[in-house]
Design a protein around this nucleic acid. Structure first.
Lengths: 241, 241
DNA sequence: GAGTGGTCTAGACCACTCG
DNA sequence: GAGTGGTCTAGACCACTCG
């Protein structure tokens, strides 16, 4: 792990512990550089990470201020659009219990559109997974997921009921490069009515998602359909310069 | 403008012009550093900008590849959640004509909740603006916007019918630090039915937004309500490491 | 004027991919 | 082994905010 990430971790901890109270100023780059025995540029990279996370705000000529991070303390701000580590990780600080019910788990050749999206040819088998995610037993999100089978050997029902992302990251050692997401409001379809237990006219919040690996290959195409009354997504956008 | 932004601009232009074709490799940092007569670190900062924009992908040991940017060529991917320069700027490359109809423009003291959000006290007058945005005359988005009046002197009907953001950036010289957004699906209210011309059971895609200035003060709280069949939002999330 | 963060350099070394 | 991008440094200078 690079030094700047380590330092970012230490500073983040100090902020959450109140060592640097909200509203106060972070020590200057020079002082932090001395403390951690690194160059000022390295400290700056660490602070940049915290800036993107919305924890601090730097102003040239003034200093770096600890922000109150009340946004993401809000109950409705638990789910962030600007990361994609799976539902389990979003909920790790939640008391509620996440479970998964596998509704469909098949493998098939993709049609042209799906093959294009996953950048495979039509002879590569693709997993199709439909999972209902429940929170404390209440229906929450219905996920339609497609993954190229050659990238995910050994996928099985047990994994689907736990966490796919844990499997990809820890067991297969895959590394994500990023994701593309598209958010819309939709009318419910028959799946939604049946599994999300929503009424015929309840709106659905859909997140369509393509996730990429470091090597450039798409690992997942999915549509995540959420009950409108149980879930919203949040997003922080920070200009860094 | 810093050198790395200038260089990013030149490289971006070359990519869109096809000087560096999709799928090919960008020249190495060393070569680009020589060409632009800067250090390799400066070239890296420029390439980082393009990475976040999804134009290139760097792999250690390999090189930097030009990606096809087909995502944001998609018609439905015009609106990005990861910037906040206003609707006018999202549509600048669109043939359709954006117009604005001012439905409400008043000023009043804020209630406690709004005062908290905008970080003003309840004695500071706050503008309340309701605007219907139309595309080629078709109702599109209904925006409920609140702004502290002391930050936006001289706001008037004429500006509201053109572009608020142009006024803030160019006339008032304000600088944005970032924004916080929260996305939900909602049932339509009476405003939506009346102005967006949507049916009683059509879903609404709502973007709730707080925009901050560089000095840390919130400049805007707004709710943007979109017809579900005319608009979705896109988002690119790239790990930079 | 003093002190802050922002930019930039030249050079060193490391981690990684590829043939 | 050759070549790539990633990290890090010490130091210089600039732009900005504040009192």
């Amino acid at each position: 792990m690079p030094k700047y990430e380590e330092i970012a971790g230490v500073l983040r901890q100090r902020i959450t512990d109140g060592v640097y109270p909200v509203g106060s100023m972070l020590p200057t780059r020079t002082i932090l550089a001395e403390e951690f025995q690194v160059s000022r540029v390295t400290v700056k990279k660490a602070i940049e990470i915290l800036t993107v996370e919305g924890l601090v705000l730097s102003r040239q000529g003034d200093g770096t201020k600890i922000l109150n991070s009340s946004f993401f303390d809000r109950e409705d701000a638990k789910f962030r659009l600007d990361n994609f580590n799976g539902l389990s990780s979003d909920l790790h600080s939640d008391d509620r219990k996440l479970s998964s019910q596998v509704i469909e788990f098949t493998v098939d050749f993709p049609d042209q559109e799906l093959a294009d999206r996953l950048q495979v040819d039509q002879t590569t088998p693709v997993y199709k997974i439909v999972r209902l995610r429940l929170l404390d037993g209440e229906p929450y999100t219905l996920e339609h997921t497609y993954m190229p089978s050659d990238l995910v050997p050994g996928l099985n029902q047990e994994i689907l009921e736990a966490s796919i992302y844990d499997f990809l990251l820890k067991k297969l050692g895959l590394k994500f490069a990023g994701s593309y997401r598209h958010i819309t409001a939709e009318r419910p379809d028959s799946y939604d009515v049946e599994y999300l237990d929503c009424k015929k006219n309840d709106p659905i919040l859909q997140i369509e998602q393509l996730v990429y690996l470091k090597n450039g290959r798409p690992i997942e195409y999915s549509r995540s359909r959420n009950r409108y009354d149980t879930r919203g997504y949040s997003l922080l956008d920070v200009k860094t310069n």
